[in-house]
């Protein structure tokens, strides 16, 4: 009797220490993970002066000596005329909207075809898709530039939309993995009822595939907000056409900058981050499903 009580107590105690240990570890890790993110936030709102000059460079103190919206004002007022942030934001929005529609269409159709339809050349297409995916993307950048130039599209948003969505058909693996799980019997019974292949796709398979549609759409929507290399090569010197990623990166490390604008860069980053992070967190459930499906299928 006494023994069991003791045991019970020690189990409880060990569970308590384990709980405390878990919380402490999680706490420390959270601090590490939030430390750089908070730094961006604090820098965005930092207003420090030195002898009357606003300091926009990086500073050594993590906690700002003064807070305010001065950096956001510079960002929106665009005193030099070279950083039309609002324009960049609108550009990115346009590009990502079109990209996400086109990419999602491409990805889902290829994935569905590869998963559920049987036709000659299917296996060949699968292998070619794998092989093409293995060439480093930067390699083709110059060629893509010349192709776009031959059809007079360099320096335009159309070009970006084309480039971001054209290759989407190759990224069908995750969605294919998802479609593979949908039982064939479901489709066969529909076929017996006289449904055509296109009807099966739109009326039966797509409604069942909400998670993967959202996953694909989410990724293709976010893409244009993050790419600062391809967009720069395609847009060249046309600053009015820049996306936020190119613009902000140029603001920080372009050769243009006479004085580094870290705090303004941070302010821009915060504005870009708010919609993406919100979108991402609200769609997190679907993202996890997609990632899990993708990983398990490889």
């Amino acid at each position: 009797m006494i023994k069991t009580v003791k045991k019970f107590k020690s189990v409880k105690a060990s569970r308590l220490t384990s709980t405390i240990f878990s919380y402490i570890t999680l706490g420390i890790l959270s601090i590490i993970w939030l430390y750089p993110i908070l730094w961006i936030l604090l820098s965005a709102f930092r207003v420090e002066y030195r002898d009357g000059n606003l300091i926009t460079t990086v500073v050594g103190n993590y906690i700002p000596k003064g807070l305010g919206l001065e950096n956001f004002r510079i960002l929106f007022e665009n005193p030099t005329g070279n950083n039309p942030f609002i324009q960049w934001f609108i550009n990115t929005l346009i590009v990502s909207l079109f990209t996400f529609i086109l990419s999602t269409l491409f990805t889902l159709s290829v994935a569905y075809v590869m998963s559920k339809l049987r036709f000659p050349m299917r296996k060949k297409f699968l292998s070619i898709a794998i092989i093409l995916g293995l060439f480093p993307g930067f390699m083709s950048m110059i060629a893509i530039y010349y192709i776009l130039k031959a059809i007079s599209l360099t320096g335009t948003l159309y070009a970006l939309i084309l480039v971001y969505s054209a290759g989407a058909g190759l990224g069908f693996y995750v969605a294919k993995g998802f479609f593979d799980i949908i039982p064939n019997s479901l489709m066969e019974s529909a076929r017996l009822d006289g449904a055509t292949n296109s009807q099966i796709f739109t009326k039966i398979v797509l409604p069942l595939s909400k998670p993967i549609i959202i996953y694909t759409a989410l990724l293709s929507f976010i893409g244009p907000w993050m790419d600062f290399i391809f967009a720069k090569v395609i847009l060249g010197t046309n600053r009015q056409m820049y996306t936020v990623a190119v613009g902000l990166y140029e603001m920080m490390y372009g050769e243009q900058v006479s004085s580094s604008q870290f705090t303004v860069f941070a302010a821009g980053s915060v504005i870009v981050a708010i919609p993406i992070v919100t979108l991402f967190l609200s769609m997190q459930k679907y993202y996890v499903e997609g990632v899990t499906a993708g990983a398990v299928k490889g």
Binding site: F106, S109, V110, L117, L132, I147, S165, A166, G167, G169
Partner: peptide, 26 residues
């Protein structure tokens, strides 16, 4: 194209994109 050749209809647009912006540059 919408039925027994549905794969053609679905693949064509994606294929053009891949051909022009992936295979050709590679």
């Amino acid at each position: 194209l919408l039925d027994d050749r549905f794969h053609v209809a679905l693949l064509t647009p994606a294929m053009i994109g891949i051909l022009v912006f992936t295979i050709l540059p590679t």
